[in-house]
Simulated assay, not measured.
Amino acid sequence: MMRLYNEFRYIMDIDDIAVFVAAQAGGSLASAARQLGITAMAASRKLASLEHELGVRLMHRTTRTVSLTPEGEDFLPLARTMLDAAEEARGILTPTGSSVQGRLRVTAPAAFGRLGIMPLMPSLMREHPELHIELLMSDEVIDLNSAGIDVAIRIAPLRDSELVARPLAVNPRVLCAAPSYLAARAAPQLLSELTEHECLALSNMQYWPFVDGKQERSVRVDGRFVCSSVEGVRTACVQGLGIALLTVWDIQRELSDGTLVSIGLSDVQPQELSIWALLPTRKYVPQRVRVFLDALERSLTDMQVGA
């Protein structure tokens, strides 16, 4: 592995490749410079050096943005693999438990990022002072490869894809409502009774999935309020606007303090979800990703045991 790493550095500079990958992920050389801790001029020179070494133009440049040429699009997957291989080579020779370095880009749903990931940041960054973390908290599904994401945390049924999926923890869903809503309207007892209630749905989730034994069942829900964000649905539920189907991680605090009350149906149960880590299809998983996922998995396990 070290021989390969040294060959990479002889053929082309790994630092130059890092500028290319960072510029594509951030959309500009200025963004790449900030990520790598160098000047914009130095970033420009490194990209030019890489292009000179390869004999092709990899990026179209303007004063503010960059975009890939066809040759750049072809080279990008290999460039990422080379960076990962270089980091893997360093990791093999790094003593176990030593500090990791580099920039970790993570995307996660907003609610889970706030409750599940942010509590890890103080200890993780204290233990690894050369680790830089960029957390994108969004309910939108982001393309990992085009955005240069190292790992995505998803809480949803997985679609078929070329991404590598690693299960982290189970995450049950519950029907819930505010006490004020249930004081005005009796809680539903059967799945069919949900159609008589104000159901607070995500914009892209008009059907709620349930299971009856091993059989899956779903019901189309309707209500006067829909939202593109889980945070918005949870807030509306707390305000007493209706019933919501939310994951346990979203509403742990509200269930504990009584702000929200869980609702059990006698004929079905909400379909259970899992928390997944999705990785780009790469041969090597960078050490910074392994360290982050191990810490997150331990934290989720501790939270479930303490629940």
Results as ranks from 00 to 15, higher is better:
3 R>V: 08
7 E>V: 11
11 I>H: 08
12 M>E: 14
12 M>D: 09
16 D>P: 02
20 F>A: 03
20 F>H: 00
21 V>S: 10
31 S>N: 13
32 A>M: 06
36 L>C: 02
37 G>T: 02
40 A>S: 14
41 M>V: 13
46 K>Y: 07
47 L>I: 02
52 H>K: 15
53 E>I: 10
56 V>E: 12
58 L>C: 04
61 R>N: 04
62 T>Y: 02
64 R>E: 07
66 V>D: 04
67 S>T: 13
69 T>D: 03
70 P>F: 07
76 L>D: 05
78 L>I: 12
79 A>D: 00
83 L>H: 03
87 E>F: 00
88 E>H: 13
101 Q>D: 11
108 A>S: 12
111 A>S: 13
116 G>W: 01
117 I>R: 11
118 M>I: 12
121 M>D: 05
125 M>W: 05
128 H>C: 14
138 S>T: 13
142 I>D: 02
143 D>E: 13
146 S>Y: 02
147 A>F: 07
148 G>P: 01
153 I>F: 02
154 R>L: 12
154 R>C: 08
159 R>M: 10
162 E>C: 11
165 A>C: 05
167 P>Q: 15
172 P>Q: 02
176 C>N: 02
177 A>I: 02
184 A>V: 04
187 A>Y: 02
192 S>P: 00
195 T>C: 11
196 E>D: 12
198 E>L: 06
200 L>Q: 03
203 S>G: 14
206 Q>P: 04
207 Y>R: 13
211 V>K: 12
212 D>W: 08
219 V>P: 00
220 R>L: 11
220 R>S: 11
226 V>W: 10
226 V>P: 01
227 C>M: 08
228 S>E: 07
229 S>H: 14
231 E>R: 14
234 R>S: 03
234 R>L: 07
235 T>V: 09
240 G>T: 05
246 L>S: 04
250 D>A: 13
257 D>H: 05
268 V>E: 03
282 R>I: 05
286 P>I: 04
290 R>T: 09
291 V>C: 12
300 L>E: 05
